[in-house]
């Protein structure tokens, strides 16, 4: 979500016409199309793309056809949705989960993972980034890292983009220590990352400067009422007709 409109979210440039037809047409309900959408998800996982509505279409098919349910796909969808924070994509995904009969636990990793994923999501929308990294690297989440995010190209960088969005909005200057704890990066890595975003580093003070953008430039505005002629047409028309 780099832009300031929803257009790219509604219809990402990476979406092919086949996927577009599935997302916008009635074919989205046809269970035999689930494979196409799942392939598209794995393409997103490999190529750092994101298409929320297409992924929700998978969950919709799972909702109507519990037989199709594939927990690995669901975990990947949720991981993708995490990186869209602070947009509520993660909640949209969970909204489509119907209560399902308890399956034998060994077969379905989801019941164990969902609470952790939800906590990760909460930490991200609360902007508690240091706590996020601590949780993510904890022993408890080893299964998630070993089985899922290892396949997910650029997962950590995608989370860092969540951080970048928050920092860009809120800061004009930020200490390297603080920024490092948010990005889970140190030293040269941190500087290289900041340079990509054209954040300049003052090494002597240990402070990064964030370039001005619409959100980190503040000013007090007094909004005065503006009356448009259109609003007065009735009154004026009435007056002139009388004379």
């Amino acid at each position: 979500m780099p832009s300031s409109t929803a257009t790219a979210w509604i219809s990402p440039s990476t979406r092919t016409s086949v996927i577009e037809n599935l997302v916008s047409g009635v074919d989205r309900y046809n269970p035999s199309n689930v494979g196409i959408l799942e392939d598209y998800l794995y393409q997103q996982i490999r190529s750092q793309e994101y298409d929320c509505l297409a992924n929700l279409a998978i969950l919709k098919l799972y909702q109507f056809n519990p037989d199709l349910y594939n927990p690995d796909v669901v975990v990947n969808i949720l991981l993708k949705a995490l990186t869209a924070a602070p947009l509520p994509d993660f909640s949209h995904c969970l909204s489509l989960f119907d209560e399902r009969p308890p399956a034998p636990k060994s077969e379905d990793p989801l019941p164990d993972l969902i609470p952790s994923l939800s906590t990760m999501h909460t930490l991200l929308i609360q902007c508690r980034f240091p706590a996020f990294w601590t949780l993510y690297h904890s022993e408890q989440l080893e299964p998630l890292r070993e089985n899922y995010t290892i396949e997910y190209v650029g997962f950590e960088d995608a989370i860092r983009e969540v951080v970048v969005r928050a920092v860009k909005t809120s800061f004009t200057k930020i200490s390297s220590e603080r920024l490092g704890s948010y990005l889970n990066l140190r030293g040269a890595e941190l500087e290289a990352f900041a340079e990509q975003h054209e954040w300049t580093f003052d090494a002597s003070a240990g402070i990064f400067t964030i370039p001005a953008n619409p959100d980190n430039e503040i000013e007090s505005i007094v909004v005065q009422e503006q009356i448009e002629l259109k609003q007065l047409t009735n009154i004026i028309a009435h007056t002139t007709l009388k004379r």
Binding site: S170, F171, T172, K173, I174, S175, I207, N216, E217, I218, E219, S220, I221, V222, V223, Q224, E225, I227, Q231, L232, N234, I235
Partner: peptide, 26 residues
Amino acid sequence: LNFVIDDNMVHIAESTVGRRYAGWFI
């Protein structure tokens, strides 16, 4: 209420909206 953080200093700017009379009078 708008604000921005400059390292450790928080700068705050508040916008105000004047009361609207026109709609009522019209």
